[in-house]
Amino acid sequence: MDALSLAVNTGFQALVLGMIYAALALGYNMVYRASKAINLAEPELVVFAAYIAFIAFSWYGLPVPVSFLASLAAGFLIGVVLERLLARPLRGRPVVALMAATLGAYYVLRGVSMVASRGFEMGSLGIPEVYQAVGPLRVSLSDVVAAGLSSATILAVIMLHRFTRLGVAMRAVSEDPFGATAYGLPVRRLTMLSWGIAGAVSAAAALALAVKAQVGPTLDFYALKALAASLLAGLDSIAGVVVGGLALGFIEQFGSLLLDPYMPGLGSQLAFIAMLIVLLVKPYGIFGTERIERV
């Protein structure tokens, strides 16, 4: 490959991966805005959701779209359950308590998905391997599905928040749960819904990821990197997590391209290095608003 097509293709892959990271980061963002905590169960929720789609498709022979829907529904359900079992009873307590509880949920989900998958390691979600050349660019069907799925998810959440009463009410609750209660908003129901949608968003991102990288227990690592991306940009802004996700995609792809010849694997660690630097300089992230944590 010549330098131009290398740059174009790396840029395109960075974009696809960046959108997936952005969707993963959006999952953290929604939980953060609802409960002011980081959902440490999300990385394993991602693995779990990918397994659901895989099992539905390859064991039960369901059509690909149906298996995807099953995965989204499972993600939503897990989000709702996490809210009911963890976030609601811990409301008003220090956020550390909720984060510790989500870490516990991470291991529970991990255990369940290990048992449910009966030890299988890798699998594909049944997207055919077809390619199309556009000038110097090589686009595969899985690129299109992954990028389409993650950007559609992000767009849907933005539209919900901007253009529907429900979404606006969710934003009001996230800004001031006390005031929202005083005005009669169903704060508990909306908080639960935020967690549910966050779960479905994580599942959509998991599907996009699985289409690109295959289903397997190591998908959680991507979600962890997306957490770095969302911290990088500031957890409380949607625009922030999208930019953060895209930035991560580009840093990683071009970082690997340039650095891997010297130090294999360094590129994929760049996210954490970047996060470390940003958090040292701007603890609330690049786009985040400074605020005092509620305890």
């Binding site: 009463r165 606006v168 009410a169 934003r171 009001a172 800004e175 005083a182 009669g184």
Partner: peptide, 26 residues
């Protein structure tokens, strides 16, 4: 309905969005 002291509205939302959010509740 309790209207809190200190003008506790949803500051990040527009006037219209404040109204939409509460209209949703009722």
């Amino acid at each position: 309905v309790y209207v809190a002291e200190g003008r506790r509205i949803f500051r990040e939302l527009t006037v219209e969005e404040n109204i939409e959010a509460v209209a949703y509740a009722w």
